[in-house]
Write a protein that binds this DNA or RNA. Sequence first.
DNA 1: TTGCTGACTTGGC
DNA 2: AGCCAAGCCAGCA
Length: 114
Amino acid sequence: MIAAGDLFFRRVYALVREIPRGRVATYGQIAEMLGVPRGARAVGWALRALPGHEEGSVPWHRVVGAGGRISPRGGPGPQMQRRLLEAEGVDFRSGRIDIARHGLLAPDGRRAAR
DNA sequence: TTGCTGACTTGGC
DNA sequence: AGCCAAGCCAGCA
């Protein structure tokens, strides 16, 4: 259960839940949606504090860094994140995600991917 | 209230 | 292409 005061965290979680399967959003993009263009780090903080309770409900793995690269955090996290994304059809051919295709507002390019 | 840290981003070497 | 430094935001001691 999230504390009543942690409104920012709840907003972040709510937004991440809205990310469709097979698509990804960047920290900066989420922050901008929240009305905080430079609050990318705050978004990361929120996800870091993501309780295991919400972990099953919030697709945190669909949140990546700018340029479609997974933020190294020193744990099995990044590896699992990449695995989950690949399972959704996200292409890591270049070692990073193509935001132009898998981005939140990007047209479904998964089909065009090759 | 002050200061440090961090799942970030951008710009310069 | 990869590494370093500065800027910004929120939470916690």
